[in-house]
């Protein structure tokens, strides 16, 4: 049983972080991130060509994480792989001791950096969960028996609480639960209210909900995400708070640009920590998934400030 499963099932407030493989073959940055996260998180997601940007594969970095002694969550999208390739990767994952899987649809290739790539989507996220469950029964998608022991997986999926109409996301969450998802990580959220119906559904069906936390580095980033990233809404008062932090830096300081960035990043960390504590206190999630987007060194800071 994975650490993540143990943490969630024991009622501990579980923490996952997230990292992306490199665009290239040098894993040294990712190895450094592992040291920053070691002992602070229950598991670490490895993205699967996040935002349709071509990188080293998720399974490759997941294996590296296993070798380094930190538990991975293998993100698996349907964008680039047929059902055969997905089940093949799942078998290889199990052979390396990877149990946690997060099934995702995957951003469309046209939004990424290899827009000519063929969108596969042989299976959607519900189909990917089923494909994993099928392997655990000892059979593949063709109904053929696997040699040796069947693999074991701890299956998860994502959901987007800030969505209109929200019923569509709740409907799909229910289908994912029916398909075998045991834990959910949400898109980045900034307000507690939208978490409520998702937590209710999680509690009703005995699955676990982890709130997605994306710390804002600057007011500009917060505004950009809010305007452009699907499922993300940063309330205006939070953007104003970041701006107010920046405004405290004296305009005549020779390092004004750097200082403004630094104080906003620190304020963003504090805001994430406060929000995390609020969610935990209100019982609106069973854990948190922190997506620091390249600033993974901030994950322990957020956890410390939140009092974890």
């Amino acid at each position: 049983m994975s650490n993540l499963q143990k943490a969630l099932e024991s009622g501990k407030f579980a923490i996952t972080a997230e990292m992306a493989p490199p665009k290239g073959v040098d894993f040294s940055h990712q190895i450094a991130v592992v040291e920053q996260l070691r002992g602070k998180v229950d598991a670490c997601n490895v993205t699967d060509y996040q935002s349709s940007s071509l990188k080293a594969s998720s399974i490759g970095l997941c294996i590296k994480l296993i070798q380094l002694g930190i538990e991975p969550v293998l993100q698996m999208t349907g964008r680039d792989r047929s059902r055969m390739a997905i089940q093949g990767d799942f078998m290889a994952a199990a052979a390396f001791g990877i149990e946690n899987i997060l099934a995702l649809t995957g951003d469309h290739p046209t939004v990424g950096d290899c827009p000519e790539s063929k969108p596969v989507y042989d299976l959607d996220s519900v189909g990917i969960l089923r494909a994993a469950v099928q392997l655990t029964t000892g059979f593949d998608c063709g109904g053929n028996k696997l040699d040796g022991a069947a693999p074991y997986y701890y299956l998860g999926a994502c959901t987007t609480p800030v969505y209109d109409p929200v019923e569509l996301q709740l409907m799909k969450m229910k289908k994912k639960i029916d398909a075998g998802a045991k834990f959910f990580q949400t898109q980045g959220v900034y307000e507690a209210e939208p978490m409520k119906p998702f937590m209710e559904m999680a509690e009703k069906y005995g699955v676990y909900l982890m709130a997605g936390i994306i710390p804002c580095k600057t007011a500009a980033m917060a505004k950009y995400m809010s305007n452009n990233v699907p499922g993300i809404r940063v309330p205006e008062y939070q953007i104003e708070r970041l701006k107010a932090a920046a405004a405290k830096v004296p305009a005549d300081d020779p390092n004004v640009k750097k200082l403004k960035a630094a104080v906003q990043e620190a304020e963003g960390i504090t805001m994430s920590a406060e929000f995390l504590a609020e969610l935990k206190e209100k019982g609106l999630c069973h854990g948190a998934h922190i997506m620091a987007i390249g600033a993974e060194e901030n994950v322990p800071k957020i956890l410390a400030e939140a009092g974890f």
Partner: peptide
């Protein structure tokens, strides 16, 4: 994406 079980995010 020709999804058959509801929208992506």
């Amino acid at each position: 994406k020709s999804l058959v079980n509801g929208p992506c995010g």
